[in-house]
Design a protein around this nucleic acid. Structure first.
Lengths: 137, 137
DNA sequence: GAAAATAGGGTTAAAATAATCCTATTTAAC
DNA sequence: GTTAAATAGGATTATTTTAACCCTATTTTC
């Protein structure tokens, strides 16, 4: 259905939430889950992905939590998508060639790959900074 | 995972196949399924969707089959996507508002809808005619 | 009337996604 | 040094979506 995953939505909300709190501020998953209205456990998985991708850093232990690792002018929506879902693959043969019966004779692969890159460029064109500005208006 | 459905792939292959056969030629689902390498039954569902959308016309009975209803310069990849999957909805609240817990307080909807339109524009920018030209090269 | 097609409802199977559960580890505070 | 609050993450289950399949009806040519 050409839809973004829930986990990505969770992650994007978390990042914009952290952004409004400022770069240095540590926020807990509980705080975000309560504030935004998401399940704490699932949001936690999204945060772990963001951390692995270097978008957020974490502080363990009491008073720990997450904070943004980079300035919001340098993080794009594409970065978050890739952190959470991996690089987008419009067609499944991009992930696993043998998932398509007609791989060797397929004429559409080039076009599809092209399309995929364009979509990724679209996501990469929005930084968290510009997203916040759009939201404020 | 931001992926296109198999049914859409089937439909797109069928349309390009019919296009190479010429506008007037009637082709059967069996012929296409054999030629392309897909399951006949499932391709048949895709064809029914294309018909309902006015992209293909059908002839029933012996010697029946499908053929393109419109010139390939006037059918875009977006038309096929919409025929088969319905209008794309990047986020599920676009389909069903109550599928999201934070619908009323969500700040991302505008941006997401915007993105969705841009993706659709991308698909609408390729006609079957131009797709075939890309393939030939 | 038989055969070859589309039309389409309904069911099952498989895969992907989302949610939950549970335990480990880290660290501050007392 | 024990407790409590947090992240880390493996493992499992539930749900939803997608794909595949089955079966019957209808249309039309010969």
């Amino acid at each position: 259905m050409l839809q973004v995953s829930r986990k990505f939505e969770y992650g994007l909300h978390a990042v914009t939430y952290m952004a409004t709190k400022g770069l240095g501020r540590v926020v807990t998953v509980k705080e975000m889950a309560d504030e935004i209205g998401f399940s704490q456990e699932f949001l936690s998985k999204a945060m772990q992905s963001l951390k692995r991708a270097g978008i957020a850093t974490s502080v363990q232990g009491v008073n720990g939590g997450y904070m943004l690792a980079r300035p919001i002018t340098e993080v794009t929506v594409a970065d978050i998508a890739i952190a959470i879902e991996g690089r987008p693959h419009l067609v499944r043969c991009g992930v696993k060639a043998d998932s398509c019966e007609i791989f060797s004779s397929c004429h559409h692969r080039g076009y599809m790959n092209n399309l995929q890159h364009k979509i990724q460029d679209l996501l990469a064109a929005t930084t968290i900074h510009s997203l916040l500005q759009e939201i404020e208006r």
